[in-house]
Design a binder for these strands. Structure first.
Length: 1036
RNA sequence: GCUCAAGUGGCGGAAUUGGUAGACGCGCUGGAUUCAAAAUCCAGUUCUUUCGGGAGUGUGGGUUCGAUUCCCACCUUGAGUACCA
């Protein structure tokens, strides 16, 4: 019987589906283990071999954990709202729900054929109304909450209202808007309902605020930063302007400290934690208030170095700072306005990219130093960002390089406050033990001593206090898109009202087009039935809007991260019990948090930060009881493509005097030379450039990145020819022949041009047409419809009968023709081969190139494995007693594979399996006692073949629940060891010696050995190092 | 610039607490089998060599009996981030 992988794999996939083999239980005697893959977006292109990498790894781990006796939850679903489906809808008019459905079907088919042990009964889709009902529900909870800084957590808005009506807002310590007006309890109680709503909105965890966005009028939409290239839209190149829009925001900044602290308790990679720390951007320092001279205004700044307060020689405000217009003097008005206008034109990106140019303008106004009362000139400069801190800095040029550069550029004084430090060339930014000077009461103190003292002094005069600042900004939560969750919000007199949770979900309305409206409203502005009736509690036709009982609904939708910030909770609940809550308390308590999360590092600061935020919020409000959603997280590395190139012969030319045609000349047939030839030509070219011939000769023989006619005219008696070696001479001759062909072809076509030089342009071709030896299937390429006429009549110059392509590792992408489809691999080699090969490529977390050629290695291994159990006549496994060697191989493998899986080192396990099978073959092993447990070791990696052989051995149940074999060290005990005998640390020969020998006995045997004497050649060793069981090293 | 990660044969990579560098696989070379090819099997494959050996894990130093592994400096590549006060 042959290893017929296609039949075997289909059979077992069907078996697993029918028997619900991988369905998780919400009650179990076994310990629980929750393993999750990052939520996939079902794109139209389907999967390429890079996508399943992480799924294979998590699947191996999940299957291993089942063998180890865990109740495993390993679910999968779809983050199915998103832009690509919407863009496709805009282009084709096809409803995104339909495209999404089709794409999901493709994904599912592709995932199924790889043999994943997902519990599909718990599948979720973010675009499903039964799912987004709960996304809307969480949004409402955020709206109904505020963050109490005294308790350090989110609380119901009712507790805030209670304080307001009893004490006003003076005692409230909350995360809220900056511009809060103080009020008393009496005032609160006399407020109108609308006034109260306005006040509360300033405290809610999700709130409406004016936010600056990148608005593209031509596309009628808002663009993300990376959709803008050089100030215009990436698609279409339309201009983009900054525009203020009222949008929903999430007060994630309230959780900055907890998000930062939580990182200490989770098992993530350092680099991932580091990027979240950077994103949160905590800095500890002080806020300092500078009064403006001759004005009733003051400027608040944030500084991390309050100890350097006496080094301040100017202040800089962001050009957008609100005080600028008020304090600018008449003389400076013109210059300041011109500067503001200039910077407004530059995008934030441009301002950030251009670090070198120093620009700014003096406002004419002065602030007053809080201690010395000296006047401090106030400047504006675009190196200060309005969006960070207070949008103003106290400039200390001697201690900050940017301030220093600014001061030098504008000739502002640079007072030195550091004792014994030279600041004539650059600022001194270190915080070491340097003592302060010229700093009054801070003189003689170090950074550490002076900082608290400075803050204390500032507090004493009421002009500052210690403060911690975070870079983390509140997150904008509105999107001007169609294909996303609708907000459960309607507007009464422009004030947002939540729809009661019992009326959820609010379903996405139908629109006739998915574009923004002519007036610039989001696509939902096109919906005809999009108004809320407060009497029937239903969505009704817009015509009924009367602003008394029927009101307009919110037109924005939620962003992609809304649905993915809580989906891991939804999986915890069995599908049939999902009606009453996003997940029941029992389910939430049972599964707790995700034990292992695997996915790409591109989510480092988006999804992984937002979902941590939502989880903390849900915990504060008592809906879940975990603080962190993902205990352990692994980033899989990207799989890169190995592109293949053919080399087209191009030529440069000049017009001859007899020219009559103006048509661009081209070869009658396009011509391609093999990579080997191109390589030789290039080597020759580089040789020319590096050789000692004159510059003029270099110009004659090699030019640009092509080859000049001069080379074609080299003849044997030139001096140049003589400096070449034989191989290079051959290359010259080959080049000349090629040149003649081109010349002749162009001459015959009568373009009236003269060929001047040749060039070889690499052209991507599909990797499918390249075999393991980099040889091109020319016929396949020529008949491929996708390339059109490009290669149909092309001529390929062969070398030794084949055409070799050039190869290069690049990102896997359709345009580079290096995408490899797993369907094809599964059909040709089987899912087990694909799974093994993906793991075999290299460490999970590293980026690594895919090269289909190598898959024959693991495929051959599976065939060898099969033959170990089954030959032409059937099963060859017997009940024979296992030999010592059989058991040694088995237990060595158990130990290694177990260690590897627990360390996520899957690549080394595959090698271990290969070694084991090679050894079993050499041992002619046929013993069921070792070959049966071996299948369990293999089954997480290659589950189909393992199931098939397992059942062939007579087992009726699935292998997936078989207990993992137990390692027994006694089988690995050795009586002797092949010792490496090294001299000065270099191994020279080996000796097999008993492990029972003592150090002295070992030394004696080795020293008296003839090979040792041969190595020493009569010298007496200075020292002999003997490490029993390891090594013997002779020094001297 | 900063932060992090990584540099080992023709290629992917292995060497888990410092102890035989190159496991395993691809590719390549030779052989067996075959009418032939595919498939399969066997042997070889870091470089160099006067066939004794010598050198060798990005470069240069250091620690050590012994360094791919630890320390210092530098170079290169990749990823992330960026005027953060």
């Amino acid at each position: 019987m042959k290893y017929n992988f296609n039949d075997i794999e289909a059979k077992w996939q069907q078996y697993w589906a029918e028997h619900q083999t991988f369905q998780a239980k919400n009650q179990s005697e076994k310990p629980k283990y929750y393993i999750l893959d990052m939520f996939p977006y079902p794109s139209g292109a389907g999967l390429h071999v890079g996508h399943p990498l992480g799924y294979i790894a998590s699947d191996i781990y999940a299957r291993y954990k089942r063998h180890k006796g865990f109740n495993v939850l390993h679910p999968q679903g779809y983050d199915s709202f998103g832009l690509p489906a919407e863009q496709y809808a805009i282009q084709t008019g096809q409803h995104p729900a339909i495209t999404t459905e089709t794409n999901i079907a493709t994904y599912r088919r592709q995932l199924d054929q790889i043999g994943f042990s997902f519990d599909w009964s718990r599948e979720v889709r973010t675009s499903n109304p039964e799912y987004y009902k709960w996304t809307q529900w969480i949004f409402i909870q955020l709206f109904e909450s505020w963050f109490n800084l005294d308790s350090g957590k989110a609380e119901s808005i009712d507790s805030l209202i209670a304080v307001f009506s009893a004490e006003g807002n003076a005692t409230v310590n909350a995360v809220c808007d900056d511009n809060i007006e103080p009020f008393t309890a009496e005032a609160w109680n006399s407020f109108s309902s609308e006034q109260k709503q306005d006040v509360l909105l300033q405290y809610r965890l999700t709130y409406l605020a004016e936010t600056e966005v990148n608005w593209c009028p031509a596309l009628g939409t808002v663009l993300a930063n990376d959709e803008i290239v050089n100030g215009v839209s990436e698609r279409g190149g339309h201009p983009v302007v900054r525009k203020k829009m009222t949008q929903w925001s999430m007060r994630i900044s309230a959780y900055a400290e907890r998000l930062l602290q939580g990182l200490n308790d989770i098992d993530w990679t350092d680099s991932l934690k580091e990027s979240q720390r950077n994103w949160i951007g905590k800095s500890v320092g002080a806020s300092v208030t500078f009064n403006v001279k001759d004005h009733n205004e003051s400027i608040e700044v944030f500084t991390t170095r309050p100890d350097t307060i006496f080094g301040v020689s100017f202040m800089t405000l962001a050009p957008e700072h609100e005080l600028v217009s008020q304090i600018t003097t008449a003389e400076q008005k013109e210059a300041v306005e011109a500067y503001i206008e200039k910077t407004a034109k530059r995008s934030e990106r441009e301002r950030m990219a251009d670090v070198k140019t120093i620009s700014g303008v003096f406002t004419g106004a002065y602030a007053e130093h809080p201690f010395s009362k000296e006047p401090v000139p106030i400047w504006i400069g675009d190196y200060v960002l309005a969006s960070y801190g207070t949008g103003a800095v106290m400039a200390v040029p001697c201690g900050d390089q940017r301030d220093y550069d600014f001061a030098k550029h504008f000739d502002i004084a640079i007072p030195n406050i550091f004792e014994g430090v030279d600041i004539s060339e650059e600022a001194f930014a270190e915080k070491g033990n340097t003592k302060l000077t010229n700093s009054y009461f801070l003189n003689g103190l170090s950074y550490k001593e002076a900082t608290p003292k400075a803050i204390e002094a500032l507090e004493a005069i009421g002009q500052g206090e210690g403060k911690t600042n975070y870079r983390l900004r509140d997150a904008v939560f509105s999107r001007q898109r169609y294909w996303g969750e609708p907000f459960p919000v309607y507007y009464v007199n422009g004030k947002p009202q939540m729809i009661a949770t019992e009326h959820l979900p609010i379903r996405l309305p139908e629109v006739e087009k998915y574009l923004p409206t002519e007036t610039g409203e989001p696509p939902l502005g096109r919906a005809d039935v999009w108004a809320w009736c407060t009497e029937t509690h239903t969505v009704v036709s817009n015509e009924k809007i009367n602003h008394t009982t029927v009101f307009p609904l919110e037109l924005n939708t939620m962003p992609g991260w809304a649905g993915s910030s809580w989906y891991f909770f939804r999986y915890m609940e069995e599908a049939s019990k999902r009606g009453d809550a996003f997940a029941s308390e029992d389910a939430l308590n049972y599964w707790g948090s995700v034990d292992l999360y695997i996915g790409g590092s591109e989510h480092a600061t988006g999804h992984l930060l937002y979902s941590r935020f939502w989880v903390k919020f849900l915990k504060d409000r008592g809906f879940v009881n975990i603080e962190e959603p993902f205990k352990k997280l692994i980033n899989q590395g990207m799989i890169l493509g190995t592109s293949a190139f053919v080399y087209r012969v191009d030529f440069s030319h000049h017009t001859s005097t007899t020219s009559k045609e103006s048509k661009e000349p081209s070869l009658s047939k396009s011509l391609y030379v093999s990579y080997d030839s191109v390589k030789k030509f290039e080597d020759l070219y580089n040789f020319i450039l590096s050789s000692k011939i004159s510059a003029e000769d270099k110009k004659t023989f090699g030019m640009g990145n092509g080859f000049n006619k001069g080379l074609a005219s080299v003849i044997e008696d030139t001096v140049f020819f003589d400096i070449l070696n034989d191989e290079q001479k051959e290359t010259v001759i080959a080049f000349q022949e090629l040149y003649k062909i081109i010349e002749k072809d162009i001459y015959n076509q009568n373009f009236g041009v003269v060929v001047e030089g040749l060039k070889f342009s690499p052209i991507h071709v599909k990797v499918q047409y390249v075999n393991a030896s980099d040889e091109l299937d020319i016929e396949g390429l020529k008949t491929d419809g996708e390339f059109g006429e490009d290669f149909k009549d092309a001529e390929f110059i062969l070398e030794d009968g084949v055409y070799k392509v050039g190869r290069e590792v690049e990102k896997m992408s359709k345009s580079k023709y290096n995408v490899v489809n797993p369907d094809q691999i599964c059909a040709e080699y089987g899912a087990d081969s694909l799974r093994l090969y993906e793991m075999f490529l290299g460490p999970l977390e590293q980026a690594k190139p895919w090269n289909t050629a190598g898959i024959t290695g693991v495929h051959g291994f599976l065939k060898k494995l099969w033959k170990l159990y089954i030959d032409e006549d059937g099963l060859v496994v017997t009940d024979a007693e296992p030999t010592k060697d059989n058991l040694k191989t088995l237990h060595k493998t158990i130990k290694k594979v177990q260690e590897d899986i627990e360390n996520f080192s899957f690549n080394t396990s595959v090698s271990t399996f290969m070694i084991a099978v090679n050894e079993f073959n050499a041992q002619k092993c046929e013993s069921k006692a070792v070959l049966e447990p071996f299948l369990i070791l293999l089954s997480p990696y290659a589950p189909h073949i393992a199931e098939e052989l397992w059942s062939q051995l007579g087992n009726s149940a699935s292998i997936s629940e078989a207990p993992f074999p137990v390692f027994d060290a006694s089988h690995l005990v050795e009586s002797s060891k092949v010792y490496p005998i090294s001299f000065n640390g270099k191994m020279r020969f080996t000796l097999e010696l008993s492990l029972d020998l003592t150090k002295d006995e070992l030394e004696e045997i080795v020293m008296s050995h003839e090979k040792t004497q041969e190595q020493l050649q009569g010298r007496t060793p200075k020292k002999v190092i003997v490490v029993p069981g390891k090594i013997i090293n002779i020094v001297g």
